[in-house]
């Protein structure tokens, strides 16, 4: 049926509202952004953007030499790599462990996916409170291990511990995301295949490695791509928990662009950096999907 030409009325209903919405709210600003990136414009300068002078690639040039931009980019990539790896391994492990039936399984799953439903600002608030000097991480958990010293750990005042606190919040909230996808993927592997492997003498580990994992590979790729794209956006945790600090040591790309645009009012420069990031994401995603499906997936 999909090859049939749509009746006029359906064509209008399917296209018009969607396009009106996208053009009015997203596509016009998107084109505007491309234009802004070539300007030297700061609203604090007292004139509107259409009067601002074109300065060519100067903003892009500046971005590629801006160490604060480059290190925020590197930090974000490191953040994505760390959280996605840990979340994937943990989520896959949990999905595998919860595959078989046992009493209380439904409840266990309901608890595990709880963080997924919370607004990131709430998760940020939770971990902001958890990691306070007298918060439970220091006051209860670490104090029981290393004693009174624990109360002197200021999580958000040191670059490394501040970064770790962000990673913990992310893992807490998003491991269930990977878990859910992996759980439905593993549940969909036909039971017969597993049994066939069992009677052929394969151990559970061998079956997992040779049967289950290869069969759910497309869903692994989907889960990792979606999660990596989401993790790359990280803003809420940083904005609330560390404010990018101490100094700029936990500033991610989103936070830096936000600051340049909103706090320093350098709209043109923010637009240029945005375009660089956009391009980067599209290229990397494309390569990753190509690598997983067309080259390695045969």
């Amino acid at each position: 049926m999909t090859d049939r030409p749509a009746p006029r009325s359906i064509k209008i209903l399917a296209n018009l509202p969607l396009n009106a919405l996208l053009y009015a709210v997203l596509i016009i600003p998107f084109l505007l952004m491309i234009y802004l990136a070539f300007l030297k414009w700061n609203p604090a300068g007292g004139y509107e953007w259409w009067r601002a002078p074109l300065i060519g690639l100067a903003n892009f040039h500046k971005a590629l030499h801006d160490s604060r931009f480059l290190s925020s980019l590197g930090r974000t990539i490191a953040y994505v790599a760390i959280v996605v790896t840990i979340e994937f391994l943990l989520g896959l492990l949990l999905a595998y462990l919860l595959l078989e039936k046992f009493p209380g399984k439904k409840l266990a799953i309901a608890i595990i996916i709880y963080p997924l439903m919370l607004p990131p600002v709430v998760v940020a608030t939770i971990f902001y409170l958890m990691f306070q000097d007298y918060g439970p991480v220091n006051n209860i958990f670490l104090r029981s291990i290393i004693g009174e010293k624990a109360l002197g750990i200021h999580w958000f005042l040191r670059p490394d511990t501040a970064f770790i606190s962000l990673i913990i919040a992310d893992i807490w909230q998003w491991t269930p995301f990977i878990f859910l996808i992996m759980y439905s993927a593993l549940s969909a592997v036909p039971k017969r295949l597993i049994e066939a492997a069992q009677v052929l003498g394969a151990s559970n580990f061998y079956i997992f490695w040779r049967i289950r994992l290869p069969l759910i590979k497309p869903l692994i790729v989907i889960a990792i791509v979606l999660r990596a794209l989401e993790a790359f956006k990280v803003f809420d945790y940083v904005y609330i928990m560390t404010g990018g600090g101490p100094g700029t040591s936990t500033e991610t790309v989103s936070v830096y662009i936000y600051r340049v645009a909103i706090e320093y009012h350098d709209i043109s420069y923010a637009s240029a950096m945005s375009l660089i990031v956009l391009l980067l994401i599209i290229i990397v995603t494309r390569i990753f999907i190509w690598y997983s499906f067309e080259r390695g997936g045969r």
Binding site: I10, N15, L18, Y258, S274, I281
Partner: peptide, 26 residues
Amino acid sequence: YNTPGPFGIFFTLLTRMLPPATFVTP
């Protein structure tokens, strides 16, 4: 009916792929 075409669908997906921070400015 295969309408809206791939562009509309792709563009809507793009809005989910990109960090909001990169298009909130304009």
